[in-house]
Design a protein around this nucleic acid. Structure first.
Lengths: 212, 212
DNA sequence: CATTTATTGGCACCATCTGCCAACAAGCGC
DNA sequence: GCGCTTGTTGGCAGATGGTGCCAATAAATG
């Protein structure tokens, strides 16, 4: 009776592992994004995505509550990686210096194709309302993670006004930098454009501090 | 042949004026928001909104491309008012000082019911994904307007990085302040809660500058 | 009143997404 | 292997979101 796990003999088929599920979602996500980029979101039906990913339409809708949320797994992967870097941000370093050190592994963690796909999505969000909405909501999640890191660093409560404001401001900076890189990489991603993201962030951060 | 207007004798029924159309949209908007607040967005059908507003479902869908965009007229009214205040921001004043002077008329321009409705929408956006998306897109429009004001003040191009970053940061501050006021006014709006918005903004702006 | 143009409402239609259920897959003890 | 239990899948029906098309009507002009 001490261990909760022993109380359940666990009969029957076990549920699929969470990672398994995530990988499945990610796989579908890649197919969906390719279709979105090729023919637009509106012109891509759920049936089409399901077929491309090799699942029935029904299970597709089980994996994704809305069509637009197909972009989520791909984007979250990046956002999570970035949040990880953020989390290791040592107290004594400026953010930009920390990024200079820790940014490259972030890029190596993903395949070039995935990075390309993510940037394609970011570009798509400028014309596709539905995607824009999904994108913005994801950025809010990132802002939240950023808020927690900042709160811990400053020794303040997560909901302190300074923490929230600074998280929002930095998040905005990151958004702009990302947007710039995405448009710059419109035709073909080179290692330089990606490394440029860091410096883009640096420039933007400077622009922020100059406003007093 | 010199005047374009004289070339067209204009026969047949004239198109409804733009303001007329806006007023119609605003009217429907009010009905929709009430329903949204009462029973949630998902539980409110387009048919229901149309019926409440006294138009056919078909024309309802003509006025609003998506269900969620029903909140737009009500929100834009506020955003536009705010942008107007921003536009009159004299070069020599700090933003917060300008707001202290010009903020009250903004509140008087709308009925208490509309203000209440707007705040209700802002609160709703925390739980209703669809509304959140619409809300965020509207905020982007506001950020854009802010960017133009800032660009003019600073004598810089609209797409200069400093301008964009500062607009984004200030927009984020405004968002947080608005959120706080909306939750604070959860049960009943008093004049104080609304005037408090100004000071909320002031506090937030201070929090921003403290980040260096 | 006839003509012209704009808006409206009704209908058919496709796409999105959900509930329900039968089929099947994957573990367990025997 | 066979049952038993549980989780996932796919198919089908159905509600809702949203669009195109067309007839009816409204508002102007002469």
């Amino acid at each position: 009776m001490t261990d909760v796990a022993t109380e359940k003999p666990r009969r029957g088929r076990p549920p699929v592992s969470d990672e398994q599920r995530q990988r499945q979602r990610l796989d579908i996500s890649r197919h969906a994004v390719r279709l979105f980029a090729d023919q637009g979101v509106a012109a891509t039906s759920g049936e089409q995505i399901a077929q491309a990913a090799g699942v029935s339409e029904r299970t597709f809708w089980r994996y994704f509550p809305h069509k637009e949320s197909c972009v989520e797994p791909l984007l979250t992967k990046m956002v999570d990686a970035f949040c990880g870097v953020l989390h290791d941000w040592p107290r004594e370093l400026e953010l930009i210096d920390h990024l200079r050190e820790a940014y490259s592994p972030l890029l190596d963690a993903a395949t070039d194709e995935d990075i390309e796909a993510v940037l394609a999505v970011v570009r798509l969000t400028h014309g596709e309302r539905a995607l824009r909405a999904a994108y913005l909501m994801l950025r809010e999640r990132a802002e939240n993670a950023l808020g927690e890191v900042l709160a811990e660093r400053a020794g303040l409560a997560r909901d302190a006004i300074e923490v929230r404001v600074q998280a929002a401001a930095m998040s905005a900076v990151l958004k702009i930098a990302t947007d710039d890189v995405a448009t710059a990489a419109a035709d073909g991603v080179t290692r330089e454009t990606l490394e440029g993201h860091r410096e883009q962030i640096a420039t933007a951060l400077r622009g922020l501090s100059r406003m007093l």
